[in-house]
Amino acid sequence: MKNIRQILFLLACLVSLAASAQWQWTDNDGRKVFSDRAPPADVLEKNILKRPGMTAKTTVNTDAPSPAVSPVAAASGAQNAASAPKLSGIDKELADKKKKTEEAQAAQRKAEQEKVVKAKVENCARAKQAKASFDSGVRVSRINEKGEREVLDDTARANEVKRIQAIMNSDCQ
């Protein structure tokens, strides 16, 4: 009868050890979560309230178990700590991807700026050439919508010179 009591007492102690192997953390909504598995990686370290084999709000020291913790609890705590994901605070792969994305975007912006500058230089050269043609006094003719050739009169010529000068002012800087 004495042995049965000791076995029951031992079983009760083992059940309490299993209950102490629980994780407790606060999720993003502020609710307490209890689990026998480690929290997901997106849970911050400060939100972890309890780890297996440790008391509430203590940190895990995997180098040496504290003397207040029983050897069985220390072994299970070390085992769970070893199986828990290591959170360094910075994900190197994510940082590398972010850096590469930023570099690619910067290169794309630079290429677009170079394309705009090249177009402005080309427009400037064309405007200067057209202005020289209008300033030379030679008659200038165009093809209208019907496909007929028409010579510009003085008002149309003056309007075209103003338009060309505006292009030169904006693109030849």
Rank of each mutant, 00 (worst) to 15 (best):
M1D: 11
N3V: 01
I4M: 09
R5S: 10
Q6C: 03
L8E: 10
F9A: 15
L11S: 06
A12Q: 04
C13I: 12
C13W: 04
C13Q: 11
C13A: 13
L14F: 11
S16G: 08
S16A: 15
L17Q: 09
L17K: 08
A18G: 13
A18I: 08
A21E: 06
A21C: 13
Q24K: 13
Q24E: 14
Q24S: 09
W25Q: 02
W25I: 02
D27M: 06
D27F: 07
N28E: 09
R31Y: 11
R31W: 07
F34R: 07
S35D: 12
R37C: 08
R37V: 10
P39L: 02
P39S: 02
A41I: 13
D42L: 04
D42K: 06
D42M: 05
V43K: 00
L44E: 11
E45H: 05
I48K: 08
K50F: 03
K50E: 04
R51T: 01
P52Y: 03
G53Q: 04
T55F: 09
A56D: 08
K57T: 05
T58G: 05
T59A: 13
T59I: 07
V60G: 05
N61K: 13
T62K: 12
T62N: 06
S66L: 14
S66A: 15
S66I: 13
P67K: 11
V69P: 00
P71T: 07
V72I: 15
V72L: 15
A75K: 12
S76Y: 14
S76C: 09
A78W: 11
A81D: 05
A84P: 06
A84C: 08
A84M: 11
A84Y: 04
P85E: 04
P85C: 01
G89R: 05
D91Y: 03
D96S: 10
K97G: 04
K98H: 09
T101R: 07
E103P: 01
A104Y: 07
A106H: 05
A106K: 13
A107P: 00
Q108S: 09
R109L: 15
K110S: 13
K115G: 10
K118G: 12
K120N: 13
K120S: 11
V121T: 13
E122G: 00
E122R: 02
N123I: 03
K131P: 00
A132I: 02
S133M: 14
S136F: 03
G137V: 00
V138A: 14
V140D: 02
S141E: 11
S141P: 02
R142Y: 12
N144C: 03
E148Q: 12
E150H: 08
V151F: 15
V151Y: 15
L152A: 07
D153Y: 01
D154W: 01
N159D: 13
E160Q: 13
V161D: 03
K162V: 00
K162E: 00
R163L: 05
R163Q: 08
Q165Y: 05
Q165L: 07
A166E: 15
A166N: 12
N169W: 03
N169K: 12
C172H: 01
C172P: 00
Q173F: 10
